[in-house]
């Protein structure tokens, strides 16, 4: 074993290996960007109504945590899965999407297997109720904001999401079960613009 490790440090072994490792280290974040760009470009647009709070994460700077109206209710499992579902919390399941009369995203049903088409997202399972309905958690739950604007955003979203006249939602592109946030809107104005306009008018 020690001999194999010793060989690792010979120039003709070490250099190709390290270049490979470094390439992978760069490719992984690179692929993340690529995946997001693909989703933004080719994904299906859904609007999710939100109610947020704001914690502080030193690693990522400030962000607004989003909580969605679509996750407030228990969602029924599809008929085929009702009998063979082994409930596990925080496991990945798929939620089928549709739009309500106001055009906001709602979940129709939950499946264990990946559905066909593009109208579903991968979600984490929450509580399970006796009538075979499941609470789900939408994974794209953060809106990253510039440090000094996060508070203003949060205050606005808190106040306006409670007010029935204001529409607070996140535009999300959905592709292959994954969602990418396009932007956070208040009354169809992107949040950063909205906060700036509000600061100017004050």
């Amino acid at each position: 074993m020690t001999n194999i490790i010793k060989k690792l440090y010979q120039k003709n072994v070490w250099l190709p290996l390290v270049l490979l490792v470094f390439a992978i280290q760069l490719l992984v974040p690179g692929y993340m960007i690529f995946e997001q760009q693909q989703t933004l470009q080719y994904g299906e647009l859904y609007k999710f109504k939100v109610r947020p709070i704001d914690p502080y994460d030193p690693f990522r700077g400030r962000y607004v945590v989003l909580s969605f109206e679509a996750e407030q209710n228990h969602i029924p499992l599809i008929e085929q899965d009702k009998d063979n579902y082994n409930y596990k919390r925080h496991a990945w399941v798929y939620a089928n999407l549709s739009r309500n009369e106001k055009g906001y995203a709602v979940f129709d049903s939950v499946t264990i297997k990946k559905p066909e088409g593009n109208n579903y997202i991968r979600v984490k399972s929450g509580y399970y109720s006796v009538n075979k309905k499941l609470r789900v958690h939408i994974p794209f739950d953060r809106y990253y904001a510039p440090e000094h604007k996060a508070l203003a955003i949060e205050a606005n979203v808190q106040r306006r999401s409670r007010n029935n006249d204001d529409e607070v939602y996140v535009a999300v592109k959905i592709r292959n079960g994954k969602g990418t946030i396009e932007d956070l809107f208040i009354n169809d104005t992107p949040i950063l613009e909205f906060v700036e306009l509000e600061q100017e008018s004050n």
């Binding site: 974040p29 993340m32 960007i33 997001q36 994460d57 990522r60 700077g61 962000y63 994974p139 794209f140 739950d141 953060r142 809106y143 990253y144 990418t180 946030i181």
Partner: peptide
């Protein structure tokens, strides 16, 4: 940082 730029979920 890339997660932050693209609002990739936590």
């Amino acid at each position: 940082l890339i997660g932050q730029t693209y609002h990739i979920y936590g």
